[in-house]
Amino acid sequence: MNNPPDISQDPKEYEEYAHGVQKHVRAYLMVGALLLTFTAITVALSYVDFGTRKANIGIAMLVATLKAGAVALVFMHLAAEKRLIYRILIFTGFFVLGLFWLILLAWYDYPIFK
């Protein structure tokens, strides 16, 4: 989804522009409703036994990732951003994955995990 374009001073063009922004507003409201629904689903799923706690954690994190994705793509306009922003985020993703990778290293290094 694109950001609303810049506003025009011409009344007729403004009308079209406002109509375009209204479309975005509808999308924001729909995503908001979707996020609230998924919150209810997250709570409900936590009371379902999926066999192991690991399975429950995995499913809850999957739903949380979907919700976070909706916030990032629509509310934060990441669905259509300039290239520089994506570059910043690729670096961030690389470093944050590296950070979590350290836990994996510790898993093999630290006797209490075995």
Partner: peptide, 11 residues
């Protein structure tokens, strides 16, 4: 908060 909520309240 989307991650904090399930990790601390639910799991």
């Amino acid at each position: 908060w989307i991650f904090v909520f399930p990790l601390f309240y639910l799991l």
